[in-house]
């Protein structure tokens, strides 16, 4: 389609390169590593032993993995041109509100749709492995999203631009310079449209990506609800979660 008047083709290519490079440099696992590990699946016995763990132990493990992954998303954000020029308040707001959504997009790289397993702590795990968490609905929602995202078969460029567009959301509450964020998001969005167009993808693909946003938001809300409930039942364990996890998802 037509480019916005303040966005030349050269701009678009520069933005695309920057965002894709930032994404590839800050992925915890490369596509090759994940491919190698794809068939490294937890055995039924191993799955059973996870299921028999305490809720506290399992929540602690997941909080640790999410915290580790968040640091990579922070690094991704820092490398997106323009992000560090935003005021500190807005950088924090965008990361607090968007880092889990970006993680959910990235997670589909670690999802194997042929056996409905997700890479977790060294091997690929089925949803049942997470039974001890006591939030099957959240776990199933995450697997469902990963399944539907993986069906879109996003390439690295599309995933990078989609992640950046989701992160640079101007409608996050308490933003002080939302217009600046909107400008950044618009450019990334145009770059994404351009990338899809150049790859011969039809407009439906972008619509399908955008249609996942409500699902992602509801998973993020469900996660906070489950965490609040867990914190009521196991306050000491919740307090021992990594400080960054508490900072990002604390009320």
């Amino acid at each position: 389609g037509s480019l916005p008047d303040n966005c030349s083709l050269h701009d678009i290519e520069r933005i695309t390169q920057n965002v894709v490079k930032s994404h590839l440099e800050t992925c915890q696992y490369s596509s090759e590593e994940l491919k190698k590990l794809t068939w490294n699946v937890y055995t039924p016995e191993e799955t059973r032993s996870f299921q028999l763990k305490s809720a506290e132990w399992m929540w602690q493990q997941c909080a640790l993995h999410i915290t580790n992954a968040i640091q990579y998303v922070v690094e991704f954000a820092k490398r997106i041109s323009g992000f560090m020029e935003l005021c500190q308040n807005d950088q924090i707001i965008l990361l607090k509100a968007g880092c889990l959504e970006v993680l959910l997009i990235r997670m589909c790289r670690a999802y194997n749709s042929s056996n409905n397993t997700m890479f977790f702590d060294g091997k690929f795990a089925s949803p049942q492995l997470f039974k001890a968490l006591g939030c099957d609905d959240l776990v199933n929602a995450v697997f469902e999203l990963a399944k539907s995202l993986s069906r879109l078969q996003l390439n690295d460029e599309e995933m990078a631009l989609f992640s950046a567009a989701v992160l640079l959301a101007p409608d996050r509450p308490w933003l002080t310079e939302s217009q600046q964020v909107q400008k950044l998001q618009e450019k990334v969005y145009v770059a994404l449209q351009h990338s899809l167009h150049m790859n011969g993808a039809n407009t439906e693909k972008l619509d399908k990506m955008v249609s996942k946003l409500p699902q992602m938001k509801s998973i993020c809300n469900l996660h906070v609800d489950k965490l609040e409930f867990f914190r009521l039942v196991h306050p000491e364990t919740a307090y021992s979660f990594p400080p960054l996890y508490r900072e990002v998802f604390g009320s």
Binding site: E25, T26, Q71, V74, E75, K78, L95, L244, E247, V248
Partner: peptide, 20 residues
């Protein structure tokens, strides 16, 4: 700032899990 001191620190420091 106090409430988000770790995020602030991550945003400020140049070393990152990726470099480590």
């Amino acid at each position: 700032k106090e409430k988000h001191k770790i995020l602030h620190r991550l945003l400020q420091n140049s070393s990152s899990p990726v470099d480590l």
